[in-house]
Design a protein around this nucleic acid. Structure first.
Lengths: 342, 342
DNA sequence: AATTAATTCGGAAACGTTTCCATGACTATT
DNA sequence: AATAGTCATGGAAACGTTTCCGAATTAATT
């Protein structure tokens, strides 16, 4: 337990040496004889001395730690990102501390505001939305930042590396649904402010939109999917396909539809976005667009760590990944299946 | 961007005051006139001064941050814990930094070894296993620790609060499977070292165990479940029920069985542990034991924060939560169903 | 108007390290 | 044996804050 009052000076006294020597011993620095080193380490052990890292870092500056700020841990899309970030960071010898902002934009801003308290060398952030404040805070921040851009368009003058998905993820979905002959296509997801490109793709793909086929829930969750299913079922004229804003919603939809006796894909086709692991364990398996989370996270982390290590200023990178549609059972054509099924 | 070389002294010079006054201004301390305060804050703004928090904490000691160390973020059981911890911490005004040890015992030990580098006031750890080193490190650690004890028995002299699940979670599963008339019950999960109680319950419930009905994979993952299914299917004498070490494994089993044309629960019943969200979105829905993650996490966090705030020494709490079996479709009795289905 | 009390402020010590620099002891070279 | 060169070591400065304490200014009391 030791209330940790023991300082380097206590060790020095016990070992009968100067504090400089103690420092050399515990840091494996050159210029100390093996025997004094041993003597010092014995004293360290005896007193249970632990260097105060605040004092250490006061000179050192580097902490070899980076922060990863993610919105909602309950969305299974996040672990994929987190895992990938950990891998790369470990390879560079960095530790990752993950901050869960819980889908709360306020706490995202708060985090940026006192990012210094985290004692990290850099930050990877996956913002929910991009209010002007966020941009200002990023630009004012005094440490390297990588942004994983999840669906939103960013101003070009943000002083951070940005790795993003190009927006056609929704376009892919819509083109696919149209190509398999669906004509009444609905949308279900969070309000469009959250990831607006997702919904814009829906609007863009249709000549005219029927507002009754659009369901906005509170978030991208299973519950939203279930509520959306209830909503669609009560329409006099049901859709024959639904573009789900993400896979959680898709799963929620599918599940509720099954409970209600509606067949997928025969009655309604469903396609989600994220290519979440969940898509492969439902029955039927759900078609989805992979947003390449692993790759995106990898690049974002590499950019950040290179910026940290090389102390790069300016010249911020912009990288885009193309999404990839993976067709599964939930969106098979009713007549014949010419698509490749995974 | 500012390379953050600007110090409190620069601000003092610009504002034409002493550094003590600057400190008072930025910390809202008493003993400063409104107008000097305003003047100082203007200087702070102009220079973009950000206090060096290493220097601050050198005196202050408290960081109002706690760490949460979790094994495998890809296991959907974790988010439940994390979410609950965040809620409580926020209520107390603390930030949570999450450390993912990726199922690696080495990195768990490493974390404890240099926990100081994280600059947190306390730690909540969900250990994978309990080698002696871990206990030693915990006892030597110089900050409050709460352990969320996930299946393993702990020595009583660990100097930390411990919130654990009482072990009968596996017993519940076995008694249930036996009660619905299954006679050849198998086990699938990670090697018994990982969470040994899970497997011991299996052994205890049976008069004699048939080693061929036990499958140990690498971990508690979907893949392990799938591989286990392949294994069981190839037995000359298949089991009629499987106790899955956790829900990920259960889902993996179910999915692969379905691909192989084996009916659940008619041919094989499956029961998992964790009561993961996944259990309700598969077809059939999977019976599982809730380990009360939310409640456990809540108590663990409260104990930790109280210990921090009140600077309690000694008197370590031991809290146990009882698991709860939730019967769903994957373990219905073949003859009639008398159980309550959720 | 004179004394006392209350504010406001700056200097300097303290927090616990790392590291530069000077010193002294020891080894190697001639 | 004398000089040069290594090596080990401790003292002290530096890192950037907060805070104690005394001084100086202002306000309040008589």
């Amino acid at each position: 337990m030791g209330t940790h009052k023991v300082t380097i000076e206590d060790v020095a006294t016990l070992a009968g040496v100067g504090i400089a020597t103690v420092s050399r011993a515990i840091n494996n620095t050159d210029g100390i004889s093996p025997k004094t080193k041993e003597k010092v380490l014995a004293a360290v052990e005896e007193l249970g001395f632990i260097p105060n890292s605040f004092a250490q870092n006061l000179k050192f500056r580097q902490t070899k730690q980076i922060a990863l700020a993610v919105p909602d841990i309950r969305n299974a899309f996040i672990p994929e990102i987190a895992y990938s970030v950990e891998q790369v960071a470990k390879h560079y010898g960095y530790r990752v501390v993950q901050i869960n902002t819980l889908g709360n934009i306020r706490s995202e801003l708060e985090l940026l505001r006192d990012i210094k308290k985290l004692h990290v060398d850099g930050l990877i952030i996956l913002p929910l939305a991009y209010p002007k404040t966020l941009k200002d805070l990023i630009n004012k921040a005094s440490l390297p930042i990588s942004i994983i851009n999840y669906g939103k368009t960013l101003d070009n003058d943000v002083k951070a590396d940005i790795v993003s998905l190009s927006t056609p993820e929704g376009k892919l979905v819509m083109e696919h649904l149209i190509s398999i002959g669906r004509t009444r296509i609905g949308y279900a997801g969070a309000p469009k402010e959250i990831i607006e490109e997702r919904f814009f793709a829906y609007e863009d793909a249709l000549d005219q939109i029927d507002r009754s086929l659009v369901y906005f829930g509170d978030d991208f969750s299973l519950q939203t999917g279930a509520k959306a299913a209830d909503y669609f079922v009560n329409l006099t004229h049901m859709p024959d396909a639904i573009y789900a804003g993400n896979d959680m919603v898709a799963v929620g939809l599918l599940n509720r539809f099954k409970e209600l006796g509606i067949r997928v894909p025969e009655d309604i086709a469903i396609v989600g976005v994220d290519n979440n692991l969940l898509c492969t364990i439902t029955t039927p398996k759900i078609s989805s667009v992979s947003i390449m989370g692993t790759e995106v996270a990898k690049v974002a982390t590499e950019l950040l760590l290179e910026r940290i290590e090389e102390q790069k200023k300016g010249v911020f990178e912009r990288v885009q990944f193309e999404p990839r549609l993976i067709v599964r059972e939930s969106s098979l054509s009713r007549t014949r299946s010419t698509q490749h099924i995974e």
